[in-house]
Design a protein around this nucleic acid. Structure first.
Lengths: 127, 127
DNA sequence: ACAGCTATAGACTAAATGTCAATAGAGTAG
DNA sequence: CTACTCTATTGACATTTAGTCTATAGCTGT
């Protein structure tokens, strides 16, 4: 076993990644316009832990998506409290969401393939 | 629509992420020892495109996993051609793989939830 | 000798994520 | 009236992960 290359990372544990947030946000916006904070309240539907979830991630994702032309935003001055930016999904965003759905289906199928291979392995080892 | 903040990224398309490679490698190693290049030949089983897949990713993943104590490697001098490093999975690696399987099942379920929500939305819009 | 394949490794780049702190309006408990 | 809390958005910075490109080196066939 070669000696470490000075890359001791403690433990390679990270959270899920796979850019799951943006499709979730697009889907929520497809149900109707919303602002960042209200979207934050909705993300636990998709398995995110609302308590530990940093709001800045949502705002960043929304701004990125606006730069891509997937969503549109305007300030809402009617509401009480601090001004909120209200987002709407654009046709480009609906297209991107539908592409994402296709990619996610494929990803799911690949995960299923790995799980099946793993379980197959386990059965072999039990024999 | 705010003017761009100088963040024109062309198009936000990336490949799948989710650290899928390492669990695939661990699973392949669970079936028996192997070296990097032979693992490269096996990854298309999991949906990777062997042609476009850069071998250095495999070697890096293997070294990372060795640093974590999940696999063990030794030089194989018996083989012809350039020396190859042969990897074996360690008990730590089997444990990590089983944890990964649990995480992947959860990820798959979350993808399924999003897909179901998307399809539900579509049906509503058709009405 | 050299072209091509097998095999591994390193450097550099780019992108995606995560963490923290700053700002600010409104309502409310004391 | 002021300190505190909740809603709301933003920016800076750090870390992690993934992707590209290049280098090295042994063997094989010509």
């Amino acid at each position: 076993m070669r000696g470490g290359r000075g890359r001791g990372k403690g433990r390679g544990r990270r959270q899920r990644v796979m850019s799951f947030l943006k499709p979730c946000l697009l889907l929520m916006l497809a149900r109707g316009e919303a602002h960042g904070y209200s979207l934050l309240d909705g993300i636990d539907e998709f398995g995110f832990d609302r308590e530990r979830f940093d709001p800045s991630l949502i705002y960043r994702a929304l701004r990125d998506m606006e730069d891509f032309g997937w969503v549109y935003s305007r300030w809402d001055d009617e509401s009480q409290g601090p001004r909120r930016r209200v987002y709407q999904i654009l046709p480009e965003g609906e297209i991107r969401l539908s592409e994402w759905v296709i990619e996610l289906r494929r990803t799911r199928d690949e995960i299923d393939a790995l799980l099946a291979a793993y379980e197959h392995n386990q059965r072999q080892n039990d024999k």
